[in-house]
């Protein structure tokens, strides 16, 4: 039980996919213009990550070593297909806002990375927990970045205007702002970590 808890917690802080391993950046930066988009993308990634980790872990003894990467990609792509269709049917507005970045979940390095580094070597339950932890870590990082960008960049939070006393800096919702916020947040987190040790 304790071991499983550790698998879960490592994805959230010590091995956070975005801030420490630096994987899966392209959806992170592109959809973090508003909290709503970020939450939609985060949930989609958690679903794909958990499902593909479970399936790949189940099949880890059947998949031949040489062609494992194409096998993993097909599993991941099928779950992304499910997400795409579900999103088109039940959340068309979100689908429009995320656009091309929904099919791009397939090439999100976090998912393939976890399949290769964890699910292909560990039993099903541990892989499920690992997927969940990494997914939640991704979700939280995305949430923080999008909150900073939306609040400072357009003076809103999740689409609702909040009373701000400053002029919102529109640069932060534009593309270069994403790189700037990520760079500064990463630096800040490293600084906190260096203070602790």
């Amino acid at each position: 039980m304790k071991k499983l808890w550790r698998e879960f917690i490592k994805g959230i802080w010590t091995e956070n996919p975005i801030f420490f391993i630096v994987l899966g950046l392209c959806p992170t930066l592109a959809v973090s213009t508003s909290v709503n988009n970020a939450v939609g993308m985060g949930v989609a990634v958690i679903f794909v990550l958990v499902c593909s980790n479970v399936i790949i872990s189940m099949m880890r003894n059947i998949i031949p070593d040489k062609i494992r990467i194409p096998c993993y990609i097909v599993v991941i792509a099928s779950f992304v297909g499910i997400v795409e269709m579900a999103m088109k049917a039940y959340a068309p507005a979100l689908d429009k806002a995320l656009g091309v970045y929904v099919p791009l979940i397939v090439v999100n390095c976090i998912i393939l990375g976890r399949a290769e580094a964890f699910a292909s070597k560990n039993p099903v339950i541990a892989s499920l927990i690992d997927g969940l932890g990494m997914g939640v870590g991704f979700f939280l990082a995305l949430f923080v970045i999008s909150a900073v960008r939306e609040v400072l960049g357009s003076g809103k939070f999740a689409g609702f205007a909040i009373p701000v006393t400053f002029e919102p800096a529109a640069i932060l919702v534009l593309a270069p702002g994403a790189l700037l916020v990520l760079g500064l947040l990463m630096g800040g987190i490293r600084w906190i970590k260096s203070l602790r040790s």
């Binding site: 760079g183 500064l184 490293r190």
Partner: peptide, 13 residues
């Protein structure tokens, strides 16, 4: 704390 990747992001921005 900005050494390496963080500064690269800021430069890219």
């Amino acid at each position: 704390s900005l050494d390496g990747l963080p500064i690269a992001f800021i430069v890219a921005s």
